[in-house]
């Protein structure tokens, strides 16, 4: 998806710049950068024309506002970090490395080209999920990876013997990146799907969801509805301080809390239906 930046010049700067920012916070602008002469607003779409008609700043006496639009092409902004990323050792059984790294010496290496998707094992939550997955039996299991990012968890599930894997992510960049990583790891059964929890159409033995507290609490009932009897649910993407909220939500949906794990401030929970 391409973005559009609108660079506003505001004279005199204050308080008009702050008011303009407040007004733009009512639009679909995602983020802003304050400059010495005004403001840059970033929109998640290609915008051909923009008007300040109806904006307060436009009617403020003695205030002049001009602006310029620029479409920003989609690009892998994470390239600099990726070029230097270090392999991750989850345990002696499992390493995660980029295509340009030598083997880690672990029993199994997953090869991940991260691009701009979540999930390299560098983040504590991915590490925690990979670590918990190593303790489960994936042989002949049906697996759902919600918020799949790079596809790293789905790829491990296939390597551990799962026979049906759906990898759902809301971000189009991620579904593309998941396919790329499947190819790097010679995986063939994962189905990358773009969408949210409404894209869940099957039942599973193991559901993996490393997203965030708000999405997990909002969508957990949909995951549970898609779980076979005795299925496992592995959750991460939230702080230790949010653990109780997720456990009580899960218990209210009939899940049994089996295990909590943590690394730095981040938490991982294991449930069973």
């Amino acid at each position: 998806m391409n973005y559009t930046s609108i660079t506003f010049t505001v004279d005199p700067l204050l308080p008009a710049r702050d008011i303009l920012l407040a007004e733009l916070s009512d639009t679909n602008a995602e983020s802003f950068v304050e400059t010495e002469t005004g403001l840059i607003a970033y929109f998640p779409e290609e915008i051909a024309a923009f008007s300040l008609e109806g904006y307060m700043v436009n009617a403020m006496e003695g205030v002049e506002v001009t602006f310029e639009l620029q479409v920003i092409e989609r690009e892998n902004w994470n390239a600099a970090w990726e070029a230097a990323f270090q392999p991750i050792i989850v345990s002696e059984k499992l390493g995660v490395k980029a295509p340009f790294h030598a083997a880690t010496g672990c029993e199994m290496d997953l090869i991940i080209q991260p691009k701009m998707s979540f999930g390299t094992g560098h983040h504590d939550t991915t590490w925690l999920m990979l670590n918990e997955m190593l303790l489960l039996n994936f042989n002949t299991k049906h697996v759902l990876d919600m918020g799949s990012g790079t596809g790293v968890l789905a790829i491990l599930a296939e390597k551990m013997g799962a026979i049906k894997i759906d990898a759902i992510d809301i971000d189009d960049w991620s579904t593309e990146n998941c396919q790329e990583n499947m190819d790097l790891n010679a995986c063939s059964i994962i189905r990358p799907i773009q969408g949210d929890a409404s894209a869940i159409k099957a039942n599973y033995d193991i559901v993996l969801a490393n997203i965030n507290r708000n999405v997990l609490t909002a969508d957990m009932h949909i995951y549970v509805a898609a779980m076979n009897p005795n299925a496992y649910l592995l959750l991460s993407g939230f702080f230790i301080s949010d653990r109780e909220i997720l456990i009580s939500k899960a218990e209210s949906l009939g899940l049994k809390h089996l295990k909590s794990n943590a690394r730095n401030d981040w938490s991982c929970l294991v449930f069973m239906l």
Binding site: Y3, S31, P44, W77
Partner: peptide, 27 residues
């Protein structure tokens, strides 16, 4: 210095280019 919506940071501009150019892991 950026202004970002709560719970909605993603690797697009301006976060992507601002952090990416410094070699930071944007994700």
């Amino acid at each position: 210095k950026l202004q970002v919506r709560g719970g909605a940071a993603n690797p697009s501009p301006p976060i992507g280019p601002a952090l990416g150019s410094k070699g930071v892991n944007i994700m």
